[in-house]
Design a protein around this nucleic acid. Sequence first.
DNA 1: TTAGGGTTAG
Length: 516
Amino acid sequence: MKAADVLEARGVLVSSSRRRRDQDSANVGKGRCMGIKQPSCMPAWYSKASGAMARGRGRGRWLLPTRLLNVCLAALCRGGSLALAESMLVDAIRLGLPPDAVTYNTLLAAHCRAAGLEAGIAVMGRMREAGVEPDTVTYNSLIAGASRRGLPIHALDLFDEMLRAGIAPDSWSYNALMHCLFRSGHPEDAYRVFADMAEKGIAPCGTTYNTLLDGMLRAGYAMNAYRMFRYLQRAGLPVGIVTYNTMISGLCRSGKVGYARMVLRELGRTDHAPNVVTYTAVMKCCFRYGRFQQGLDTFLSLLDKGCISDVFPYCTVISALVKKGRMEEANTYSDLMLKNGSRLDSVCYNMLIHMRCQEGKLDDAFELVSMMEDGGLESDEYTFAILVNGLCKMGHIEAAEKHLCYMEMRGMQSNVVAYNCLVDALCKLQEVDAAIRLLQCMKLKDDFTYTSLVHGLCRVGRYHMASKFLRICLHEGNNVLASAKRAVIDGLRSSGFKNDLRKVQVALNMAKLLRP
DNA sequence: TTAGGGTTAG
């Protein structure tokens, strides 16, 4: 696969794909239920369906019972009752009912969604053990699983494995692979996959174009995406509500609010009805660009119409209210969200944990973390950053440090935000030497890291050191806020550090010239 | 398989 070669040449691919495949194979067949607890009760239709399957066996008719089994399994998986679905499969096998590719593909997709790619690969192993060969749908679900977890190398390996096994990829396979490459920051490789698709004679579908538009918008090519959107319209290619929503939210995210407004107005003139996704994107755009009341009104009208079916609009509005410090309203809407009975995911929990931290209710925040983990959701880098920040803000520096260590132990990929929170807290406590030691431990530093440190050093009058870190920061291709630059320049000037002042001015001019 | 939600500096 060409895209894999390109990634490998760039050093993006790790050469351990073979080793990982071996690990995957070793995991195959292990842990049938992947740690999911056995349910305590079963729905009434479960026993009826089991009975129907048994009767089907008695008459020697296999087709209907297997289809019935698949329909029941799909319903259980959709409802998040994976353990029940597994029990049903065990019962079916015990009755001598043969599961087919659809049975395993249904379970595989659900496991992939709930527990990740490894869990999906384990189902594929069980599938093979049962003598059912994986097909295109099996691999498509696995590639989508890799995409959800941001694993482009796994996705490419799976695509490659599929080709070697003689299983023909379809447009879904290409779409999932493209989406994974775009979302993990490899737009050029994603375009190559699109070109490969055309070369192989696989016709792009609406999802293909939507994925391309979304990828272009996220990669910073907003105007190219806009031109492509217009081309799709002119050429009579599929342009639906997902396309409009992709364009509206992507253009807002890119700061092209005028263009987003134009597309939104245009949507109103089409036959496609704006939906809750459209309004959530509009709300987010209002909050981002200072139209707070308009965003809130949009939310209230959604609430009035009773068309909020999940947690997305709630999370958007609660987060905006917390940022404004309007905690009472934030609490009102979070109570409403919980009362609504919508399933909370980790993003939602993180938002609620952040809200409790902002209120200084750390015990409640940690209680939410326990609830989240008891419910089978894992803390991620957002959870840790929120907790570290909350602990710092309440003055629990040692506890924040412990959390950072735990994060390191867990091998979390991105911990720069959590580190930044602690650097900032130490600087605000005027413990700048401790902040410098911490910064030296950081594998990755960004604009936030240096802004906090430079400000902290200026605050305690250490302008020479501040100018040194400012130059290191610029040399590394990072930047600091204008206020931090001003603090250094004013400090050097008032302290008479003429040489440092000259060096900083040269470094700032150089950085300006080199910046794209 | 695709669209909307979460954390840090001033």
